[in-house]
Simulated assay, not measured.
Amino acid sequence: MKLGIISDTHGHLNAWTDACNKFFQGADMILHAGDVLYHGPRNPRKADYDPAELVKVINSCPVPVIIAKGNCDSDVDASCFEVPIQAPYAYVVAEGLRIIITHGDAVMTDAEKDAMAAHLKADLFISGHIHTTVLEKRGKTVFLNPGSAALSKREDGKETCAVLEDGVIRIFDLATGDVLSSLTL
């Protein structure tokens, strides 16, 4: 099983296409942790900001896409997608792994995430929102934030995505393809 994991594209077409073309080839599913289209009032817009085209590309994606609603995802934006934007979280079971995908704006603290993960017996808890990467295991759950594919807030400024394949999660630098961190489930 191969899962592509992305968050915080904020309407930037290249963020999506770079992740799909470079890292998500052969994926069985793509999980998006929200803030798909709108750049948000505090975020800059880069030259590739094209939410209308991003909708078309996601709608025509040959791989199933699961999207959790982010704080910048409006109902009007959601109506453009052929797949639902799920709120407050999406719950996926893939090859026996229980996966929660939530944006992270409503479940922000580690304690809140731990409680939700325990209640839903999650093996993997994916969130976005903070535009930086997290990959750690607490208790029985791996917590992953793939960072932002478009508007990084990492100290090094690297835009990122993640892949789960053969039981290993890797966070990639979108520009270079370098593995920034990895963890075995």
Rank of each mutant, 00 (worst) to 15 (best):
A149G: 15
N43V: 04
D123M: 04
D18F: 04
T133N: 05
G70I: 05
G4Y: 11
L185D: 04
K2S: 04
Y89K: 13
P88W: 06
L151F: 11
G11L: 13
D105F: 06
A33Q: 07
H32Q: 06
L3S: 10
K46A: 07
Y49A: 07
E165G: 06
H10C: 05
R138M: 05
I101D: 02
D75T: 01
R45E: 15
Y89T: 08
I130Y: 15
G34F: 11
V57T: 09
H131Q: 11
I5G: 14
G70W: 06
K56F: 12
Q25A: 06
I67E: 00
E82W: 09
I171Y: 08
L135D: 15
A149F: 14
L180T: 07
S74Y: 08
L37Y: 11
I66P: 04
A87W: 13
A122M: 06
H32S: 10
V107M: 11
V168Q: 00
P41T: 09
V142T: 14
A149K: 05
H39E: 14
D105C: 00
V107Y: 15
L144W: 09
D28G: 07
E165K: 11
R42N: 09
I169C: 04
H39R: 15
G177M: 02
Q25M: 08
F24T: 10
K137L: 12
A162E: 08
Y91V: 00
Y38N: 12
T9V: 14
S74K: 08
L120P: 06
G96A: 08
D105K: 00
A94K: 13
V168S: 00
I100V: 14
F24Q: 09
F23I: 02
L185S: 10
T9D: 15
L3C: 10
D28I: 03
A94C: 13
H12E: 14
Q25N: 09
M108D: 10
A149D: 12
W16A: 07
V63L: 01
T160Q: 09
I169W: 03
I30M: 13
A122V: 01
H10N: 07
A90W: 07
L31T: 05
D48C: 13
D105T: 00
S7H: 03
E136C: 07
A19D: 01
